[in-house]
């Protein structure tokens, strides 16, 4: 099974390292492997370090930092061999590299599955980078294939016009999501998608957490469903969701593929009692659907949507109707 892969790009000083430190220290049960150029700069609290192996730093919360060295391919191959130890892999792209070049590793079924490309921007310096011919093309190249543009340091950006900045940065990119933040503080769930140790015992609480988690006016909507789903019908349903959704997550009980069970309307249980279920994530506009054959973590299918001004962009009645 391919490991979810997130690439974090952005210029020197944009806040990538701070963002990564936040990720690692607030992993909240996720076992994240972070590949960085220099983990000395991460400045991880010594009390969190379980083992320092020179090129790797094992943290007591199950996360690991690995140094990329001079060969990212080699580092990825090594990590692939330890795939079962991790839920998610995050690569920090160097300040001037194009994160999309690395991200494509996640599109070739070579041990990794692309979860998202995040580009961190220092909002207080972006305008000066855009007007400097030595930096402009590099910055625009980074933004070209971003799934999520994170405008960091907005507290230092004075009265810049964020819409204008967003327009300039995303000239060649119509699908990127944009979020603002301070000191790289962003809920981990907005940054990373699926993870394999999904407990989801309280998926609704997960949605609620966004109301207290941040300085921004998040809204979350939850829906429950007793309907019998197939992967196809759920994919069809997804078309009803608005494009500017920041994050979505669902655990869907699937009906059996066999005719008998469809007719009888029974839940799809194999002889071993396992259930077929589907896990859905939308992170930064990118959908991931994964089928599981284990005991389902939820009885009813559940859907949570998170975004800004959801009440304006989401027709809750339509979704309620279609989901149920």
């Amino acid at each position: 099974m391919n490991l979810p892969l997130t690439i974090i790009g952005g210029f020197l000083g944009a806040g990538k390292t701070t963002l990564l430190r936040n990720l690692l220290t607030q992993a909240d049960g996720r076992r994240i492997a972070v590949l960085v150029n220099d983990f000395g700069e991460l400045n991880i609290d010594a009390s969190l370090i379980a083992q320092n192996g020179g090129d790797t730093l094992e943290l007591s919360n199950g996360c690991v930092c690995c140094s990329i060295g001079d060969d990212l391919n080699a580092a990825l191959i090594q990590l692939e061999a330890r795939a079962k130890d991790f839920d998610h892999v995050v690569i920090e792209a160097s300040g001037v590299s194009d994160p999309w070049k690395i991200a494509q590793i996640g599109l070739i079924n070579a041990g990794y599955r692309l979860d998202g490309v995040v580009v961190v921007i220092d909002a207080s310096r972006a305008e000066s980078h855009l007007s400097n011919p030595r930096y402009q093309d590099t910055l625009l190249r980074q933004c070209r294939r971003a799934d999520l543009l994170l405008l960091n340091k907005i507290d230092l950006a004075g009265d810049i016009n964020l819409d204008e900045l967003r327009r300039k940065l995303l000239t060649d990119n119509t699908k990127a999501h944009v979020m603002t933040c301070i000191q790289g503080r962003l809920a981990i769930d907005l940054l990373l998608g699926s993870w394999r140790q999904q407990s989801a015992s309280s998926i609704d609480a997960w949605g609620q957490s966004f109301k207290t988690d941040t300085h921004l006016p998040w809204q979350s909507l939850s829906f429950l469903s007793d309907r019998l789903w197939t992967k196809a019908s759920f994919s069809q349903f997804l078309k009803h969701l608005p494009q500017d959704l920041l994050r979505g997550k669902a655990l869907i009980n699937l009906q059996s593929a066999t005719r008998d069970e469809v007719v009888s309307g029974s839940r799809s249980s194999g002889s071993d009692g396992a259930t077929h279920w589907l896990e859905w994530h939308r992170v930064s506009g990118r959908d991931t659907l994964t089928e599981h054959v284990t005991a389902s973590p939820v009885k009813q299918s559940v859907l949570v949507l998170i975004g800004l001004n959801l009440d304006q962009s989401v027709d809750a009645q339509l979704i309620e109707r279609e989901f149920n």
């Binding site: 060969d71 990212l72 391919n73 080699a74 990825l76 191959i77 692939e80 070049k101 690395i102 494509q104 590793i105 070739i108 070579a110 041990g111």
Partner: peptide, 19 residues
């Protein structure tokens, strides 16, 4: 043409040539 494409080969045969 790109390291990512070449990665598909390298993970099967190891680093070759200049690499």
């Amino acid at each position: 043409q790109e390291p990512t494409a070449m990665h598909l080969v390298i993970r099967k045969v190891g680093n070759a040539g200049l690499l």
